[in-house]
Nucleic acid binder design. Structure first.
Length: 203
DNA sequence: AAACTTATGCGTCAACCGTG
DNA sequence: CACGGTTGACGCATAAGTTT
């Protein structure tokens, strides 16, 4: 499956993964970098720029890519400003047991379920496709051509959409790793400062 | 080894939204 | 308001992993 070749002759791997590609430049990055630890790079302006971190990496250099801004939010850049794939607030699912989770999932599925497609409805009614669909042959040809174009475009759009979604998820995972490391480092720092404070107090 | 389960990706449909 | 782009949902195919 992983080796599946798409019909256009290219596989997904042909794309450069921004998360694993080498970094070319880092310009005026406001960042937190400490020796021996991973860090979060933040753009002071919120604009996109090549970004480098150590360890678990968030690398961004492409438009339409996932970025981090000073606000700490992860978002994808879209021309229309929309932020797809909203992150579910903590406390919604995490706290659920397996049984509960199944129920919630089912319920959510029901809520999200769309009405069946027209094709499905027709199938359910036992109506064969093209039956009784008249019209002139020329209109039919034109419509078929338009439909082919639409399908082709949507096929490519779906591929791109999935690629972006994967990139987004990867970046979220990276962010989790980075924040966990930061958290660990801060706990260590706090610990050593406490020790130092106690020592000085005794003297 | 066969049967079953899980993970992943694809194509399509439909809904929504922005734009001209 | 028609049109096109984006994306969630769905069904399907296939590979990989697990169980019998």
């Amino acid at each position: 499956m992983e080796g599946m070749v798409e019909e256009n002759g290219t596989s997904g791997s042909a794309e450069v993964d921004p998360l694993s590609s080498p970094i070319s430049a880092v310009s005026s990055v406001q960042s937190v970098i400490q020796a021996n630890q991973q860090s979060v790079i933040q753009s002071a302006t919120g604009s996109i720029q090549p970004v480098l971190t150590k360890g678990n990496v968030i690398l961004v250099s492409k438009p339409n890519s996932v970025i981090q801004t000073t606000s700490g939010q992860l978002q994808t850049l879209q021309s229309n400003g929309r932020v797809p794939w909203q992150v579910v607030e903590a406390g919604s699912d995490d706290s659920l047991s397996n049984e509960e989770e199944g129920g919630v999932r089912k319920k959510r599925r029901e809520l999200l379920t769309r009405r069946p497609s027209y094709r499905k409805i027709l199938n359910d009614l036992g109506v064969t496709q093209n039956a009784g669909m008249g019209g002139s042959p020329i209109m039919g040809e034109d419509q078929a051509r338009k439909r082919e174009m639409r399908l082709l475009k949507n096929r490519e759009a779906a591929r791109e959409c999935r690629r972006k979604k994967k990139e987004y998820i990867k970046c979220l995972e990276n962010r989790v790793a980075v924040l966990e490391n930061q958290n660990k480092a801060l706990i260590e720092e706090l610990k050593s400062l406490k020790e130092l404070y106690c020592q000085q107090k005794q003297e």
